[in-house]
Design a protein around this nucleic acid. Structure first.
Length: 871
RNA sequence: AGGCGCGUAGCUCAGUGGUAGAGCACUUCCUUGACACGGAAGGGGUCGGCAGUUCAAUCCUGCCCGCGCCUACCA
C-alpha cells in the first residue's frame, strides 16, 4: 500500500472517482428494483446557466439526501435535466446574434432563429450538467430530461389540451403586464417591484367643457392622459360633487371625458381627490372602466411607443412622451403642480425594463379550481414543508391566487397548440397539427397556428411526472411518483413549487412530493446578493478547482440550517478553507491509521467483536471510541431524517476531530507502543482505529463523497466487502457497541487529564517534565476507575506517578502539600506538588521581566494618548 | 397596509423554562513519528429594551426599538 501524501490533494482524486462511479452504473436506479423508492427531481437549471453558488447549495443538499438514502438501501433516484427557459435563453441568443452578426431575430425569421437557438444549445447547453459532475452529484444521467425534448413537449401540449377541454384554459382580452423590451406578456410573478422609488406626483387640469372651471388630477404618469377616458371623483367629496356627470375637454385629442363618481378607485384624501382614468394602461383604471363601461384606448404599441391614438405625440417613446406631454400642458397653462412621491415601479424580471400594463389578448389558466386541492393536500399533511413555517406563505398566496397568463410573445418555447381558421374564424385546439378546421372543415391551408409560445413555467410545473413518462403510464411513474422530497430555494415557491402541487394533483391525482425542503439563498459574507454586476460572486467551479468539491460541499452543508424567512447563508471563501482543513484532518487521521496497520487482520477482528465488546475483552479506549462512533452515527442519521443538515455535518465533524483525532488516536499511540506487533492487544487497537475511521467515512460520504471513497478504498476490509463506499450501508446505531459505563468512565478520565494539563499550563511546567499527580475522589467507584486507568492518565498528562485516595484521607507523610497546585475535575481534586518543578526564582524573574515590559508599553501608550496632536 | 421571520461571544450562527454552545477570530505555550491546513490551555456574553406570568425567563405573554423577507397596493 502506497503511503498517503502528507497533505490532501483533492484534484488528484475527484475526477478519477466520479468516472469510476459512472462506469459502474452506481447512479442509475432501476424502476423495477424491489426496494423502497426514494426520488428527487432536480430543479432544472436554465440551459443558458452556469453553476452558481445557489445551484451548488441545492445540488449539495440533494446529493446528500440521495447518497444517504441510497446507502440506506433505498432505490434512490435523482433525476437531472435542464429547462429551456424561454425568455432567458432567447435573450442570450439574440444578444449573441446582435453582437456577432448585427442582426435581430426578425432579420432571421422564426424558423431560422429557432434553429440558431438549437445550435447554441448544442454548443453551450448542458455545460451546467458537466459542472454538476465536478460537484460529485450522483444524478441518474440516463434519465436526463430537457423541457423541449419531444416526449416532454408532447406532455406540455397534452396538459394544455386537457386543461382547455376542461374549461380551465381560456383566451381573453385583459390587462396584462407587458415588457416593451422583451415584447411579450409576463405573468404577475415575473414582475419585480422596486420598493420606494422616488417619483413625481404631477398635477394638471382638465377644463370643463362648459367653461365653468376645471378639475385638477394628480398622476405619476402624465403621458397616459392620452388614453384617459374619464376622470373619477369620490361621490361624497364636496369639492367635486357638482362636477359629476359633466364633461371635460381633452387638450390634445378630440375626445370628451366624463367626470364619474367611483368610491372604489378614489381615495378623497390622496392627491387632488380626482383621478384620471386610463383603462388600457392601469389595472385599477381597467377595473373602473369595466364598472363604468368606459372606452379602453391603448396608446402604446408593443415597444412602448405612442401610437396614432396619441395624436401629436405619436411616435414618441413612453418616457419621451411624458416630458413632451408635460411641456405642452405647461404651454397651455394646465400644469398645476408637482410633488415628490415615493412609489413602486414594476420591472421585467429578465431585462429590468419598466413593465407596461397593456390591454392584450392572451391565454390564461383558471387557477382557483387548481389551487383548492393543493391547499387541501398541504392542510392534510400530504405534503409537508420544511421548515414548516413556509406553508403559511404558501397558503396566503394560494388563497389569493389569480389567473395565470401563460402565453408569451416569444419564439423559443412550446408553441400554443391552437389553430385559427381564416374561413370561419373559429379556433381548433389539437395535440397535433390538424389537417382541417374542426368547425367548418376548411383545409389545412386555411389554418394558422397561434404565434405565441407558453410560459416556461407551464412546462416546469409538470416536471415531477413529465420527466417520468407522463402521459403514458410508465413503470417509472409507478415507482418514483410521488417523489419523496423536493429541494429548492424559497424564491421559486410560487413560480414552481405551488404550481407543481397544482399540476401534480390535477393530472396525477396525487401530490408530486411528500416533503418540500426549502433552502435559503446564498449571499456574500455581507449579506449582499451575489451578482456579476456587483462583482461579489464566488464561482463554485473555481472553488472546486482550488479547494475540492468535498470542501465546498461540506462548507455548504455546515451552513445549511432551516431556511428561516428573511435569512440567508452568508458565504465566504473562509468557510471553504475551514472545510478544507477538515478534509486535511481526515486525510491525516487516515494516514495515521494506515501507518499502524502492520499485521492487522480485518476478518479476525470482525470475529472478535461479532458479539460485542464484552466478549472481545476490549480495553476502555477501544470500548469508548466504538461506543462514541455509534452515538455519532445515530446523531447524524437522526439529523438527516429531520432535515437538519448542518447538525448532521457538525455531528460528524465533532466526532472525527474532537473524539477520534483529539482523543482516541492519542490514546492509541501509547496503546500501540505498549502492544507488541502481532499481539491480540495490538489487533484490538488496530481494529478500533479501522472501525471508527471506516464508519466515519461512511457517515461522511454523502457530504464528502470523494475523500471518503479514497480513504475507504485504502482501508483494510474483511472478505466480501463491497467495491465502493457508495454501495456500502449507511451507519445506523448498532446497540451492541453502546457502552454507557465506558463512556462515563472515559469522561471522568478525560476530565482529570484536562485538569492536569490546565495546571501544567498555568504553572508553566515545562513540557518534558514528568510530574506527580494526586487525585482525591469522593467515592470508591470513582477511585476504582481512576486507579484502573492511572496509566492512561499518566501518559496523557505526562505524569511519572498518579496516586488516588478517598478525599479526606491524607496524603501527608507522602508529600508536602505546601507548594501544590489544585484544580477540580468535577468532584475530583487534582493536585500537583510543585516542589522542584517550578524554579520559584526563575519564575519570579520571568514575571518581573514581563511586568517591566508591560509597564514600559503602558507608559509609552499613555504618553502617546496624552499627546493632543496624536489624538 | 397585511403576513412571516430575525436580534445570543469580535464575526457567522446553533440552542434550551433550571450553571449559556459551535466554527472562525483572539491570548499564552508547544515543531513530540498522522496532520502547524496541527496540538494543549485560556479570555470573551445583563442571550435587543421594558413590563408581566413563574419558585425560576435568554426561552412563555404583551408592548417598544432595530433589521430582513414575502404578498397586495401606491392617481
Amino acid at each position: 500500500m502506497a503511503e498517503l501524501p502528507k497533505t490532501y490533494e483533492p484534484s488528484a482524486i475527484e475526477s478519477r472517482w466520479y468516472a469510476e462511479w459512472m462506469a459502474r452504473g452506481y447512479f442509475h436506479a432501476d424502476a423495477s428494483a424491489p426496494k423502497a423508492p426514494f426520488a428527487i427531481v432536480i430543479p432544472p437549471p436554465n440551459v443558458t446557466g452556469s453553476l452558481h453558488m445557489g445551484h451548488a447549495l441545492g445540488q449539495t443538499i440533494e446529493d446528500i439526501f440521495t447518497r444517504w438514502r441510497r446507502m440506506a438501501a433505498y432505490n434512490a433516484m435523482w433525476l437531472p435535466g435542464t429547462d429551456h427557459a424561454g425568455i432567458a435563453t432567447q435573450m442570450v441568443v439574440e444578444r449573441e446574434l446582435k453582437a456577432k452578426e448585427g442582426k435581430s431575430r426578425h432579420d432571421l425569421g422564426r424558423v431560422e432563429f429557432e434553429k440558431r437557438i438549437w445550435d447554441w444549445r448544442g454548443r453551450m447547453g448542458d455545460r451546467i450538467l458537466d459542472q454538476l459532475k465536478t460537484l460529485g452529484c450522483s444524478l441518474d444521467w440516463q434519465r436526463t430530461t430537457f423541457t423541449m425534448d419531444p416526449p416532454y413537449s408532447a406532455a406540455v401540449i397534452e396538459a394544455f389540451v386537457r386543461l382547455h377541454e376542461e374549461g380551465l384554459i381560456y383566451r381573453a382580452k385583459r390587462l396584462i403586464n407587458w415588457c416593451p423590451s422583451c415584447r411579450t406578456a409576463l405573468s404577475d410573478l415575473e414582475v419585480d417591484y422596486d420598493e420606494g422609488v422616488q417619483g413625481e406626483l404631477y398635477e394638471f387640469a382638465y377644463p370643463l367643457a362648459d367653461g365653468s372651471g376645471e378639475i385638477v388630477v394628480a398622476t405619476t404618469r402624465p403621458e397616459t392622459m392620452l388614453g384617459d377616458t374619464a376622470v373619477a371623483v369620490h361621490p361624497d367629496d364636496p369639492r367635486h360633487q357638482s362636477k359629476i356627470g359633466k364633461t371635460l375637454e381633452h387638450p390634445f385629442v378630440d375626445r370628451d371625458i366624463p367626470v364619474i363618481a367611483d368610491a372604489i378607485l378614489v381615495d378623497p384624501k390622496f392627491g387632488t381627490g380626482a383621478v384620471k382614468v386610463t383603462p388600457a394602461h392601469d389595472l385599477n383604471d381597467f377595473e373602473t372602466g369595466q364598472r363604468h363601461k368606459l372606452p379602453m384606448i391603448s396608446i402604446f404599441d408593443e415597444a412602448g411607443i405612442v401610437n396614432a391614438e396619441g395624436g401629436e405625440f405619436a411616435g414618441l417613446d413612453r418616457f419621451k412622451a411624458r416630458k413632451a406631454v408635460k411641456a405642452r400642458l405647461k404651454e397651455l397653462r394646465l400644469e398645476r403642480g408637482s410633488k415628490l412621491h415615493l412609489h413602486a415601479v414594476g420591472h421585467c424580471q429578465r431585462c429590468e425594463t419598466v413593465v407596461e400594463p397593456m390591454l392584450s389578448t392572451q391565454w390564461f389558466v383558471k387557477m382557483e379550481p387548481l389551487a383548492k386541492p393543493a391547499i387541501e393536500a398541504v392542510e392534510q399533511g400530504k405534503t409537508k414543508f420544511v421548515p414548516e413555517s413556509w406553508s403559511k406563505t404558501f397558503f396566503h398566496w394560494m388563497y389569493n391566487i389569480r389567473d395565470w397568463c401563460i402565453s408569451r410573445q416569444l419564439w423559443w418555447g412550446h408553441r400554443i397548440p391552437v389553430w385559427y381558421c381564416s374561413k370561419c374564424k373559429e379556433m381548433t385546439v389539437a395535440r397535433a397539427t390538424p389537417n382541417f378546421c374542426g368547425h367548418c372543415g376548411a383545409g389545412g391551408d386555411a389554418l394558422a397556428q397561434d404565434e405565441d409560445v407558453l410560459d416556461t413555467w407551464f412546462s416546469s410545473w409538470l416536471w415531477p411526472f413529465a420527466t417520468l413518462g407522463w402521459p403514458n403510464e410508465t413503470r417509472e411513474l409507478k415507482t418514483f411518483y410521488p417523489t419523496t422530497v423536493l429541494d429548492t430555494g424559497y424564491d421559486i415557491l410560487f413560480f414552481w413549487v405551488a404550481r407543481m402541487m397544482m399540476a401534480g394533483l390535477h393530472f396525477m391525482k396525487k401530490v408530486p412530493f411528500r416533503t418540500v425542503y426549502l433552502h435559503t439563498m446564498v449571499t456574500d459574507d455581507k449579506g449582499e446578493k451575489m451578482s456579476k454586476v456587483k462583482g461579489n460572486t464566488i464561482d463554485p467551479v473555481d472553488v472546486i478547482q482550488q479547494h475540492g468539491a468535498d470542501a465546498l460541499r461540506f462548507a455548504l452543508a455546515w451552513l445549511t440550517t432551516p431556511a428561516a424567512q428573511g435569512k440567508n447563508i452568508k458565504f465566504s471563501i473562509s468557510n471553504v478553507e475551514d472545510a478544507r482543513r477538515f478534509a486535511n484532518k481526515i486525510w491525516n487521521s487516515a494516514r495515521f491509521v494506515q501507518m499502524n496497520l502492520e499485521g492487522y487482520d480485518a476478518d479476525r477482528f470482525a470475529d472478535q467483536v461479532a458479539d460485542g465488546p464484552d466478549r472481545a475483552e476490549l480495553d476502555l479506549p477501544e470500548r469508548w471510541i466504538l461506543s462514541r462512533v455509534q452515538r455519532a452515527a445515530e446523531e447524524v442519521d437522526t439529523a438527516l431524517e429531520e432535515y437538519r443538515i448542518s447538525d448532521a455535518a457538525q455531528a460528524a465533524y465533532h466526532f472525527v476531530w474532537n473524539e477520534l483525532c483529539d482523543w482516541y488516536i492519542e490514546l492509541a499511540k501509547t496503546g500501540l507502543q505498549r502492544a507488541a506487533p502481532g499481539t491480540e492487544a495490538r489487533l484490538k487497537i488496530q481494529g478500533a482505529l479501522v472501525t471508527a475511521l471506516e464508519t466515519a467515512m461512511r457517515l461522511l460520504h454523502p457530504f464528502m463523497p470523494f475523500i471518503t471513497e479514497e480513504i475507504w478504498q485504502q482501508l483494510p476490509k474483511g472478505s466480501g466487502a463491497p467495491q465502493s463506499i457508495m454501495i456500502t450501508l449507511y451507519p445506523v446505531r448498532d446497540v451492541r457497541f453502546y457502552d454507557d459505563a465506558s463512556e462515563s468512565s472515559m469522561a471522568l478520565v478525560q476530565k482529570v487529564i484536562v485538569a492536569i494539563r490546565a495546571i501544567r499550563g498555568e504553572k508553566n511546567i515545562p513540557g518534558p517534565a514528568r510530574i506527580t499527580v494526586l487525585l482525591a475522589v469522593t467515592d470508591d467507584y470513582k477511585k476504582t476507575i481512576l486507579e484502573g486507568y492511572k496509566q492512561i492518565i499518566a501518559e496523557q498528562g505526562r505524569c511519572s506517578e498518579v496516586r488516588v485516595r478517598r478525599s479526606g484521607a491524607s496524603f501527608s507523610g507522602e508529600f508536602s502539600l505546601d507548594n501544590t497546585a489544585m484544580l477540580m475535575a468535577g468532584d475530583v481534586e487534582v493536585m500537583v506538588p510543585l516542589d522542584g518543578l517550578v524554579d520559584a526564582d526563575a519564575e519570579r524573574d520571568k514575571l518581573h521581566k514581563e511586568l517591566g515590559k508591560v509597564k514600559t508599553d503602558c507608559d509609552y501608550l499613555t504618553k502617546k494618548l496624552s499627546n493632543a496632536k496624536f489624538v
